[in-house]
């Protein structure tokens, strides 16, 4: 069974370099773990300006209510992927990812 390993900073660096597209098997395992559906609110992006600006928000599972917006805004979708990756890493590791 795959288990999260907070010493595998190489996977974080790999994701940061290319958050979309082909990943190494170990990074793909980690992403599957991070994206596993649960009963907790999950992150999404709300378009503020078409193709220009997106706000991080959280949706309740079940699609029964609108997303709850945060104060975090992105102008690049790759930045958004990296930001959420860091959030999830912190949750799994119990500490901040030591990579900006």
């Amino acid at each position: 069974m795959y288990r999260f390993d907070k010493t595998r900073l190489d996977l974080a660096r790999e994701f940061k370099a290319d958050p979309l597209g082909e990943h190494s098997p170990d990074l793909q395992y980690l992403l599957h773990l991070m994206r596993r559906p649960s009963d907790r609110p999950f992150p999404c992006l709300v378009v503020e300006e078409d193709d220009e600006r997106w706000r991080l928000a959280f949706l309740e599972p079940g699609a029964k209510s609108p997303p709850r917006p945060t104060e975090v805004v992105f102008t690049d979708l790759r930045e958004a992927e990296w930001y959420v990756f860091k959030l999830r890493w912190r949750e799994l590791a119990g500490e901040e990812l030591p990579i900006d």
């Binding site: 999404c44 992006l45 709300v46 928000a57 599972p61 699609a63 979708l77 959420v84």
Partner: peptide, 19 residues
């Protein structure tokens, strides 16, 4: 159901976007 869970992000390999 696209908006119902993380399954969409899992299938798509990227964050869900709503307008």
């Amino acid at each position: 159901s696209r908006f119902a869970s993380l399954a969409t992000e899992l299938y798509h390999g990227r964050l869900l976007v709503l307008d």
